[in-house]
Design a protein around this nucleic acid. Structure first.
Lengths: 224, 224
DNA sequence: AGCGATAACTGATCGCCGTTAAGTGAACGG
DNA sequence: CCGTTCACTTAACGGCGATCAGTTATCGCT
């Protein structure tokens, strides 16, 4: 016990090694610190399996079991971590769709570009949230606050508007089309993420060209 | 040591618990048994993290370290496991493309349907092979024997034929288009797999409708 | 100022994992 | 019959997610 004491003089060290215990009503402070650390580690490691409960705890400057005071298990921690950034995605999607107006097709293109760009900016969170979860994963009763549900609703609304205005094929099954469109942009994000930095199978992939091809392909196919 | 002996009388038990040691030149027998067991477990668990080296070893009736006599690590074991089934996919794709002839668009639709159907039939292997690997994953120098490279080459060839025959837009960047098409079918498979058996976000998804919508959307967008 | 209650957090431990090192015994060639 | 070699095992390491039984700091209250 030579150096380990911190009742006073605790403002210089930022946080990680020694952390001041939260005061009585402020237990939730730790929750946010945990989420921040988990997000930082997820971005840096790029892979959810490389983010460990123990690692997050050490980054926060706390013991591993403390995590469980705020999250039921690792899955919940990661979900909440990614959820925060996906709320930002929804914001961006709504901006892309709402601002500048234009035709439905133009708005969909903008939204698609925003979605893909966002996914490529946050690959760790993207594959964590949309990647394969445990096979036994609970029915995952998602409500309207779930960012995925919101984004899907936005897409369905857009397609409905397009059909109604005659801009899109009138016999479109909007639900099926929404899933198909989502699948196409999702696949684009996923493949571009996966292929980042691996030996190119045939040649270097021009990301921009792929994105624009995918988007125009999709929408030409939907147009009336 | 009451019941544990097996020098003789070893024909009744099939394999799992006690396994006859292979003879001198037949060490590779175990390799195939391991692959079979790994495939079985992967199909049954649906998730690569639920397939453990120890579990595979027990299923074969062998000790865990024996796996490492035939595979460098778990990743290699899983890769080889999935590779076997993806060779079958390539076969099916070539049948779909080659047989019955027809226009390029027709052949692409058949291939797309075959790809998606295959992915949905083998979800465990699909997400294992195409899902997120470790972030540090080696450049993965894939050669022409890799099923992914072969399938991609098939797709590129098809697109080139379509452009040449005037069936597809003449200004198509075939590489970018191939990636985009692959992304779209991949995304469709991935999303339909992920959404299997979870509480539907908006309503029940009609898989057939999604598949047909995705395929026609794609190809209408590519057509001249 | 002192004290019991309670919120916030820790140390020790469990059972599992992937992986490695060292050893054992059966099958073969000579 | 013997030594080598192949096929495999036992034991163990370090790290993982998770649990449980404490421990300590802060609070309201007298």
């Amino acid at each position: 016990m030579t150096t380990t004491k911190r009742p006073s003089s605790a403002v210089d060290a930022p946080d990680p090694p020694g952390r001041r215990r939260a005061r009585k009503g402020e237990g939730d402070l730790l929750r946010d610190e945990i989420l921040d650390a988990a997000e930082r580690l997820l971005v840096e490691k790029g892979n959810k399996d490389s983010v460990t409960i123990r690692g997050v705890a050490k980054a926060v400057g706390v013991s591993a079991p403390s995590i469980y005071l705020h999250f039921a298990d690792k899955e919940e921690l990661l979900y909440e971590t990614c959820r925060r950034v996906f709320d930002i995605l929804n914001q961006r999607l709504m901006e892309a769709v709402g601002a500048g107006e234009g035709t439905v097709v133009e708005r969909m293109i903008r939204a698609g570009r925003a979605y893909i760009a966002f996914g490529l900016e946050h690959p760790g969170q993207y594959v964590t949230l949309f990647g394969p979860g445990p096979a036994d994963s609970a029915p995952l009763d998602l409500d309207d606050s779930d960012p995925g549900v919101q984004a899907f609703g936005l897409l369905v609304g857009l397609l409905e508007a397009g059909v109604e205005s005659g801009e899109l094929k009138s016999d479109t099954d909007v639900i099926a089309a929404a899933v198909a469109v989502w699948a196409a942009v999702h696949g684009t994000v996923y493949i571009l993420i996966s292929k980042r930095g691996i030996a190119e199978p045939v040649m270097t992939i021009d990301e921009e060209a792929v994105i624009e091809t995918a988007l125009s392909m999709m929408l030409d196919g939907l147009r009336a």
